[in-house]
């Protein structure tokens, strides 16, 4: 086993837990559904505990928990991008926001689950010794909880999706129109003398040396 690679991976996995904990804090603070709030609080606390377990594991293996590997940086950037997604794209209805937050949890937990599954597989291949014992101890505490996090996120997201498709009132169809411009409709509605694309092009063809049309409307 390449110990340096393992320590790089553990740094990455620690970053995933750190960012997961931040994600749970954010989504818990804005969830309106009681089950979501409760589960986020519970899983956030467990994720916090996973962070501690990884710090202890890295220390036991002779690593430095403050070390941040190159792949940890990528994991951090990806996790932060999950949270940035709703800052860049808007607006969403409250229900859509809630579903998007849960989808981010699912994506984060998928990665988290894969990390611990890898550690579990590695543990089985290692000879008996201190490293195997340390990994076994960590995996036995964390892996069942990761299974639960992932399964819950997937099933809850499916439930939210089904409810949105069948029983819930659909979101306001104009929610996007309130933040973006759609000239074809809006300008005609609000402009006293709407300008067609054709008349704009005609006016633009007039040589600069000639008198300009008196107004856009007269050129139509």
């Amino acid at each position: 086993m390449h110990k340096a690679v393992l320590l790089d991976k553990l740094s990455e996995f620690l970053m995933v837990e750190q960012c997961g904990w931040q994600l749970y804090r954010v989504v818990q603070s804005r969830a309106q559904d009681a089950e979501l709030r409760e589960r986020y609080a519970e899983f956030g606390a467990e994720t916090d505990r996973h962070r501690t377990i990884l710090i202890e594991l890295i220390t036991q293996l002779g690593g430095d928990p403050d070390y941040i590997s190159p792949t940890a940086r990528v994991a951090q950037a990806k996790s932060e991008a999950l949270l940035q997604s709703v800052l860049v794209c808007g607006p969403l209805s409250d229900k859509e926001m809630e579903a998007n937050d849960l989808e981010n949890v699912l994506l984060a937990e998928t990665k988290d689950h894969a990390d611990w599954h890898l550690l579990s597989e590695l543990t089985e291949q290692l000879p008996k010794g201190k490293t195997r014992t340390a990994l076994e101890n960590a995996v036995s505490q964390v892996e069942p909880q990761e299974d639960e996090h992932l399964e819950w996120a997937a099933s809850k997201l499916a439930a939210l999706g089904l409810a949105a498709l069948t029983t819930e009132a659909p979101p306001d169809p104009l929610r996007l129109e309130r933040s973006v411009i759609t000239p074809g409709v809006k300008v005609k509605q609000v402009h006293p003398a709407p300008v067609s694309l054709r008349s704009l092009l005609d006016a633009a063809k007039v040589p600069a040396s000639e008198p300009a049309p008196a107004s856009r409307t007269s050129a139509m």
Partner: peptide, 8 residues
């Protein structure tokens, strides 16, 4: 120019 979050 890079965000669509009204509060921000």
């Amino acid at each position: 120019r890079s965000t669509d979050n009204f509060e921000i």
